[in-house]
């Protein structure tokens, strides 16, 4: 009797494992297919019927992608804007979150609510007014201007995440530092920050990704000197044809680094993702 129950339970578990395996394979398939396709001959990319594995492995698409005008520059611009935006986002979010968690609750709550409302604003709504503002301060078509725009997206989330992390740092720590004669900022910098380093890293990753993957602001705010990869990828379809092979290569080049990043930093990212929602 017990053996039978045990067997049935084992069978169910095996079935569940198989089910999960199938889900994961389905989930991984699109990206695997993208990467495989980028190694096909340009004409095989659009062959009918489609093939899964490349018939002939070739780097032709990557050559075409990297020698296309604007592509190497766009990769740099993406990196530039994302780096600036990450730094900016942290510089603003860490003190703000510290303020929220250490000072009075009412302004803090109002502020957090304000930041959340800011997150709801559709980029398309503030995109065009932002273009005007950037124009008037001379930041149109610059990585700094774009980074500022991207920070409007990542800042609310960064503040929210940092507030959650700093909340977990005991107030006694910075009080001890203040007794030793440190200023508020000094306490934050020397005592609280090192404790919350993990949280800062997660926040940085999210801020970086928000900018790295953003499209609309990049489309509106940049043209020549700061155009990022998402725009270049989107615009690869010209009036004179659509090179699927080159596009898959571009997409691969742009995604593989962040996918690898996600695999290395898996645990931290999961922690950051679930923090806000689960604790709320």
């Amino acid at each position: 009797m017990t053996a039978l129950v045990f067997d049935r339970r084992r069978a169910t578990r095996t079935l569940l494992w198989l089910l999960l395996g199938a889900v994961v394979v389905l989930y991984a398939f699109p990206f695997v297919y993208l990467v495989l396709t980028s190694f096909k001959l340009p004409t095989d990319v659009i062959s009918v019927p489609p093939m899964f594995l490349p018939k002939t492995w070739t780097l032709a698409n990557f050559h075409a992608a990297l020698s296309a005008p604007g592509v190497p520059a766009a990769l740099l611009h993406s990196l530039e804007a994302a780096s600036i935006s990450t730094v900016l986002s942290l510089l603003l979010a860490v003190p703000a979150a510290y303020g929220v968690t250490r000072y009075g609750t009412v302004p803090g709550q109002v502020f957090i609510m304000g930041a959340l409302v800011a997150r709801m604003v559709p980029p398309v709504a503030i995109g065009v007014p932002l273009v005007g503002i950037m124009n008037s301060v001379g930041l149109n078509d610059s990585s700094l201007g774009l980074a500022i725009a991207h920070t409007t997206i990542s800042l609310p989330l960064s503040i929210w995440l940092m507030a959650s992390y700093l909340d977990a740092v005991p107030v006694e720590l910075d009080e001890a530092a203040r007794v030793d004669g440190a200023s508020r900022i000094g306490a934050l910098w020397r005592v609280v920050m090192p404790v919350a380093a993990g949280g800062i890293a997660v926040t940085a990753i999210f801020a970086f990704l928000a900018s790295w993957n953003e499209f609309l602001f990049a489309l509106l705010l940049t043209s020549i000197h700061a155009q990022t990869m998402p725009v270049v990828i989107a615009n690869f379809q010209t009036q004179y044809g659509l090179q699927w092979g080159t596009m898959t290569a571009l997409a691969t080049i742009y995604s593989v680094p962040v996918v690898l990043l996600s695999l290395f930093l898996q645990r931290r990212i999961v922690a950051g993702l679930t923090l806000g929602a689960v604790k709320g």
Binding site: L66, P72, L75, L76, L79, E80, A81, S83, I84, T86, V87, G138, L139, N140, D141, S142, S143, L144, G145, A147, I224, H225, A226
Partner: peptide, 23 residues
């Protein structure tokens, strides 16, 4: 490209350099 990418990484977002006026 490689050199430039390395440079951009080495200078962590020196914002000043990235500001470019409309040409």
């Amino acid at each position: 490209m490689g050199g430039a990418a390395g440079l951009a990484l080495a200078l962590p977002a020196s914002a000043g350099a990235a500001v470019r006026r409309v040409a």
